[in-house]
Design a binder for these strands. Structure first.
Length: 829
RNA sequence: CCCCCUAUAGCCCAACUGGUAGAGGCAGUCGACUUAAAAUCGAUACAGUCUGGGUUCGAAUCCCAGUAGGGGGACCA
């Protein structure tokens, strides 16, 4: 005969995630649990996930990022902050357009269908999001302000048009910004990028190079170090000098060099073959040869061009430059190893101290002069190391005998006195090319008028809306924007003179859309302003930004730039948009990124159906530290589900009444609970979310034990443990936690309950196990009061029989290290 | 080629930043419950911290060299 335990007197149910999900999802929506109010006395926290691109349904990567981002959002909410945690869609971009061309449709159809799908999944995934602030960058009410931003930048001189050789993706049929070219290939499709001379719109991000670099100081410690390193590297500040060279035919050409001290070794002069400068300099006799060389370069892809072991090529331009230090005549060449858009696009060739110049000099049989003394055992070609200057003397200036740094200072001073050079800082960063020859983006709000030139679209005429009557083949890329073929759309009268004029037919890089969306969440419906300044200043900067490291440079650099520009326009009072950044890892399967071609994709929807939302979220967070990759083959959502069931049962088994005073409860469980509370706080602050889960598991184990074979289900300490379990679990398993909270007799929502404070007294132990080492090796242990004095501890340790034996065997005590109350180390011999 | 990060039980991961290597989970083994199994509950073994040096009373932790994996940069003058 079976005797039913007390806890089974009530009707018991088993854990069923489907029932629980169905119960709470509608509740949160109706309750408006996660709506953030701007007028609120509590201190604010703004948690933002990088918004998704609507490519089909949400996938495992989204699931990880959002699960991780929701942890601080929910934690801060429990800690009493007014939390803003919005969501939106980055909904302009190529895939929609490609789908539209293929299916004879308009990109909006595909886009908004996918957004609906994702939004439904997102809601089910139970991220604590304020849905009232939802936005889509492809909505007219959004891109109207993207265009407004463009006009403001234009007004400030930060948006401009220029002719330049640009990166062209032959597959996407559009130009690309430098940041979107990865090792010579298109960041999106991997096609090798070619060069094309075009007139395009740019944002003057280079004006902010120094500030983008300097302000990183504010991010130190709260952004991943590698992201800062990548940005630093990308901005590429280098100190050096501009030096002017007189050329035949009355030209003065300036070069940038980081080694002005080597100028005495400059024996030739090179300019970028694809730059305008080469055309200007070349003599009539050499013009044909230059044209032939350029023709030859066209067949060389960027990837090939960047191979460092490639033979140096070039063509003589028929002119000579005068070395300002030596007065020597130097032949001028055009070459592809000099970049048109770095520095001034011209370089002095110093073969003795620069390997590239050395190779060029060898090819063209040019003289090589060493101007820095290499060490005796040096057997390389160009010498770039430290050493004394040699062969560096002419007329009234000499560097001979000086070390590199000293020589640099001396020559710059001399050049300055001659008016032939000056100290300068150069950046690797280029201006941001924002024109795109594609359809599905925000049209550039400029009108081209034969008489007035570039005329901004008047603000009240915004948005310049995309035509809705174009579809399918009409959207196909043809080397220029599909909009150009829509005569009706293009044709417009000039806002300034009223004459016939035409719209700019390019659209903006979608990174422009995403460079300011975190500001739009403040009031996404505003028709008055891009965002309300006062409220933006209250909510921003974002306290925790969460997203993939693939945006380390692109989106994050652009956003930092736009924030600074908006600051300078007086629209916001901060200069950095994201106070802290967390890069979540990838979700892998079997050691590799999930991909169609590998056939190792895991479908998020199927995982959710099988294990439930909470189990999947818990698995994502528990599997590894947030910034590490999660290999789905190594983890077990089934085990997570088991743990959730176990936690849930705990709440069901509690028989004490809500509000009971826990202080009379089982002390040993209370110690575990309060240690869990205290630890969780530090761990959450340190973003060690996986370890927080481990602490909760420990607590559930301890509570289960107390319930089954200790103080029993009515003990108030068991209730206390179960309640904190529900609260802590609410960070990752909102459905289960909400249901537990209700089981425990509380009003929903657990998300807005108050995080408990831990009792200090429960954390202090009276006694502690002290370790006794002999010569650093653990030999015995000792139970001592925590406030034991060093003398006492030493004396007790030394009197231990085991220890005395070791001392006797090892030849007596030489020294004793005491770290009361934890450790004694006896040094013998 | 250069720079950065990582390396701890079979696996995923902890370790108060120099002080007892193990918190949690997976997989394993054993037991309780069961006619049996699943579920549940309980109990357990397993590594001396990638390799080799060094600093220290004491090193997973700091330093040097190397190996392996991951990331970034790579004609930037």
């Amino acid at each position: 005969m079976r005797c039913a335990p007390v806890s089974e007197t009530a009707e018991k149910q088993s854990y069923d995630f489907r029932t629980i999900e169905a119960k709470w999802l509608p509740f949160w929506e109706q309750d408006g649990t996660f709506v953030a109010k701007s007028a609120d006395d509590r201190p604010k926290k703004y948690v933002c996930d990088m918004f998704p691109y609507p490519s089909g349904d949400l996938h495992m990567g989204h699931a990880e990022a959002f699960a991780i981002g929701d942890v601080p959002a929910r934690y801060w909410r429990l800690r009493g902050y007014n939390v803003l945690h919005p969501v939106g869609w980055d909904s302009f971009g190529l895939p929609a357009e490609n789908a539209a061309i293929k299916n004879n449709a308009h990109p909006a159809e595909w886009t908004y269908r996918n957004i609906d799908t994702q939004a439904t999944s997102f809601k089910r995934y139970a991220i604590s999001t304020d849905w009232t602030r939802r936005l889509h960058t492809s909505d007219e009410m959004y891109y109207r302000w993207t265009q407004w931003l463009f006009l403001k930048l234009f007004e400030q001189g930060l948006a401009y048009r220029k002719d330049s050789p640009v990166n062209w993706c032959p597959s996407c049929q559009t130009v690309l910004a430098n940041e979107q070219v990865v090792s010579g290939a298109c960041e999106r499709c991997g096609t090798p990028v070619t060069k094309k001379a075009l007139n395009q719109w740019y944002f003057r991000i280079t004006d902010y190079a120094d500030r983008l670099l300097d302000d990183m100081e504010q991010l130190e410690g709260s952004w991943p170090e590698r992201v800062l390193a990548m940005q630093r590297n990308w901005i590429g500040r280098s100190e050096g000098a501009h030096v002017d060279f007189e050329l035949d035919g009355d030209h003065t050409v300036t070069v940038f060099t980081t080694r002005p001290d080597t100028i005495f070794g400059a024996t030739f002069f090179v300019v970028a073959a694809d730059a305008q400068l080469a055309t200007e300099l070349v003599t009539d006799e050499q013009r044909e040869e230059l044209a032939a060389y350029r023709e030859q370069l066209k067949s060389v892809s960027d990837i090939e061009r960047q191979a460092t072991d490639r033979k140096k090529t070039g063509v003589f331009l028929g002119v000579h430059a005068t070395n300002p230090a030596t007065g020597a005549q130097m032949p001028v060449y055009a070459t592809d190893y000099v970049l048109a858009d770095y520095g001034t696009g011209a370089v002095m060739g110093v073969p003795g101290q620069d390997q590239r110049d050395w190779e060029f000099a060898k090819t063209f049989d040019l003289p090589i002069v060493r101007t820095v003394q290499p060490p005796e055992d040096f057997d390389g070609e160009a010498y770039t190391g430290a050493g004394e200057a040699i062969n560096s003397s002419h007329g009234d200036v000499s560097l001979d005998g000086l070390e590199v740094e000293q020589a640099k200072a001396t020559i710059i001073e001399w050049l300055e006195s001659q008016g032939a050079g000056r100290r300068t800082i150069n950046f690797r960063l280029r201006d941001w090319l924002v024109s795109r020859q594609r359809f599905w983006g925000a049209p550039i709000p400029i009108i081209h008028c034969a008489a007035c030139g570039e005329v901004p679209v008047p603000e009240e005429q915004l948005p310049v809306a995309l035509p809705t009557n174009m579809r399918g083949e009409q959207l196909a890329p043809k080397g220029q924007s599909p909009l150009a073929s829509n005569a009706e759309w293009v044709s417009v009268s000039c806002p300034r003179c009223g004459e016939k004029a035409s719209r700019d037919t390019d659209t903006m890089d979608t990174f422009v859309d995403s460079s300011w969306y975190y500001l739009r969440y403040i009031d996404p419906a505003s028709t008055e302003a891009i965002f309300p300044t006062e409220e933006a200043n209250n909510w921003l900067p974002v306290d925790q930004y969460v997203g993939g490291v693939e945006h380390a440079i692109l989106h994050l650099l652009y956003s930092r730039f736009i924030t600074k520009a908006l600051h300078d326009m007086g629209l916001i009072n901060f200069v950095e948009p994201f106070r802290a950044l967390l890069n979540q890892g990838q979700v892998l399967n079997g050691g590799r990124a999930m991909s169609k071609s590998l056939g190792n994709g895991v479908d998020l929807g199927e995982q959710l159906d099988e294990f439930g939302v909470d189990a999947v979220r818990l698995t994502m967070v528990f599997a590894s530290p947030p910034e590490d990759d999660v290999d789905w083959a190594d983890v077990s959502p089934a085990a997570s589900q088991k743990f959730l069931a176990r936690a849930w049962r705990l709440a069901q088994d509690v028989t004490s009444a809500p509000g009971v005073d826990p202080s009379a409860g089982a002390q040993r469980l209370r110690v575990v609970t309060h240690r869990a509370i205290a630890d969780a706080q530090t761990l959450l602050d340190d973003q060690k979310y996986n370890v927080v889960i481990a602490r909760v598991m420990e607590l559930v184990n301890a509570a289960r034990k107390e319930l089954d074979s200790g103080a029993g289900p009515a003990d108030p300490a068991v209730r206390e443990a179960a309640e904190f379990t529900a609260q802590a679990l609410s960070l990752v398993a909102p459905y289960t936690a909400e249901d537990m909270w209700a089981q425990l007799g509380h009003e929903p929502s657990v998300a807005n309950s108050a995080w408990p404070s831990y009792e200090e007294a429960l954390l202090v132990q009276d006694t502690i196990t002290a370790v006794v080492q002999v010569r650093g090796k653990l030999r015995d242990k000792l139970e001592v009061p925590v406030d034991i004095t060093e003398q006492e501890l030493e004396q007790q340790a030394l009197s231990l029989p085991k220890i005395q034996k070791y001392i006797a065997d090892d030849g007596g005590v030489r020294k004793v290290i005491v770290r009361a109350p934890k450790l004694v180390n006896v040094v013998t011999g």
